[in-house]
Design a protein around this nucleic acid. Structure first.
Lengths: 314, 314
DNA sequence: TAAAACCATGACAATACTTGTCATGGTTTA
DNA sequence: TAAACCATGACAAGTATTGTCATGGTTTTA
């Protein structure tokens, strides 16, 4: 085995055992102890964060933030990384922000000049804006860590009518529509609740542990595909502009039927719990939509219109 | 200089010159031609895409998709890359998708087992959903390429009242609110127009070139910070729920004033062109907002209410 | 058609590097 | 105080790398 290959394997070895003696290395790789020492010194010089403790029960340790063996990337893979980083550029206070910068620097430093120009140019024709770039989610990192380690959090949350304190076990975090959300198990009632991160006022890690046993993707999938429990049949006619606006809504888009360039309709089943939201949506479309079914939505829209009318005539 | 270091530098050298002879290498690195041959053979064996042409005027070439010198990343940097990739997971038909997969595999392969678990777990507690994950933007890659190379595109676009054909020079692409947009110079009128990628029906590269001379970031910045040209003073009172909804709007958020837990107001200047949009927004807030100024908005809201009322009473 | 300018590969000696053994000295713990 | 670690130096034996020379192939050009 060549020296380079051996050093490479040695990085893998020290990364996985974390604590070892020169003896261990010598035995593992069938080399002398003297050479083991020499190799470990070389790794240190390469920047691998080893430290040693002399004396009995001493030995070598690897610190956190271990260095991986050197990896060959090609130009396209570098592009892919730059492209992905670009997508996060406008989020505020992201975890791993500093590490992204150092990845960027390392890759950029090794690119040939013409590719650098391309990368600079890519940067100048591609932006991922997000709606809530003004709103920061200061607790994001803590929440990701808590979700990873199954910690229970104590949060103060600004809900519709008042501020509440809750003990929750986060299932995970997700961004939707440019805004961070956290589905959790609320430990007071053992139900799943979703919180918006920008509405969390305070957060404390209780150091207690609770494994929700729920996988974020699984949960999101069930949310998205869930059949309505109390299905309500919605039918509405749309103008051209109404079609355009409905198609922009991902939850409506599959249900829009286009009859001709200027007329269409939308027909779907929703759950009772979504009634208010859906009614508000059609209300906001004004004369570009006309809800035909159900009467409940029509009544709601009429009531809202009357209330608002009164509100504005006083 | 050690052999490893020399090979490393040689990668940088061949990546930047792209075409060279063994003689050149020998001269550049002060080694014999024989050794230059040996080294170049080694690079080939390492996977660097060299090919050779024998004969006079022959020599070595490097193919596209050049391989970068090996890079040491640490655990946190690997995390950062996984985190960034996660943010793109739900976009449809992205450029660099295949390369992202191979980056993922390479990094993952070299992670120690415990870190692999963490990465798997990170994957299970973090999702970046986006609103239009159902809507694909099939022309994204073509548009990025056209923007990079300053090509003029011929598009068919579904606008508010009819489908139109336009010749445009893309300034760039950006995502906002989960949806892809493309600011362009419309060559028929030489004005800047923004198109939504999902509303592009057809796209053709004309092979003509036109340099817009506009930098996407610069343009976005001016869009966002632009002072209103015909400023209109808006003042509205808000309920608790009104505050909540206004704070969710990034363009309103800085102008919301909270008086107490249940009352607040919002005051700002907007441009005349935004009047309809802003009016619609306050209309949709119903009784949770009361616009006090200007009369124009109040009139608009009243008219909309009446129209919709009539619409729903027939 | 021959010479020039490339690549490809082999042999071999000179040189440089790597390794294992032995030796010495320091630190910590039982 | 002995055991079990790390750290480092010296040196000979073993291994790898390098440059020189040699030979053979391909393509271009004069």
């Amino acid at each position: 085995m060549s020296k380079a290959k051996l050093l490479f394997d040695l990085i893998l070895y020290v990364n996985s055992v974390r604590r070892f003696t020169a003896q261990d290395v010598a035995h593992e790789f069938h080399i002398s102890i003297r050479t083991a020492h020499r190799y470990l010194m070389e790794l240190s010089e390469m920047g691998i964060p080893l430290y040693t403790e002399p004396g009995r029960n001493g030995g070598y340790r690897i610190l956190d933030n271990r260095v991986l063996p050197p990896i060959f990337f090609n130009e396209n893979e570098a592009y892919a990384i730059f492209f992905a980083f670009q997508s996060l550029k406008y989020y505020k206070s992201l975890p791993f922000e500093i590490d992204m910068q150092s990845v960027y620097r390392k890759l950029y430093a090794y690119l040939p000049p013409d590719t650098r120009n391309k990368i600079d140019h890519l940067d100048s024709v591609l932006s991922f804006w997000n709606k809530n770039r003004g709103l920061s989610s200061p607790f994001l990192k803590e929440i990701i860590e808590a979700a990873l380690e199954n910690y229970v959090l104590d949060i103060q949350y600004q809900s519709k009518h008042k501020n509440t304190n809750r003990e929750i076990a986060p299932i995970g975090v997700y961004v939707y529509d440019g805004c961070w959300y956290m589905p959790t198990v609320d430990l007071s009632c053992n139900e799943i609740r979703v919180f918006r991160l920008d509405r969390i006022l305070k957060l404390k890690n209780t150091e207690k542990k609770y494994n929700t046993g729920i996988h974020l993707d699984t949960w999101l999938e069930t949310q998205m595909t869930q059949e309505p429990r109390e299905p309500i049949h919605i039918y509405a006619e749309l103008t051209r502009e109404g079609i355009r606006k409905c198609i922009s809504q991902p939850w409506l888009e599959p249900h829009v039927q286009i009859k001709n360039e200027n007329h269409g309709c939308v027909e779907l089943y929703i759950d009772k719990s979504e009634l208010a939201y859906v009614s508000d949506f059609f209300l906001q479309l004004g004369t570009n939509a006309k809800v035909i079914k159900p009467q409940k939505v029509i009544d709601y829209i009429r009531k809202q219109l009357q209330d608002t009318m009164r509100h504005y005539s006083s």
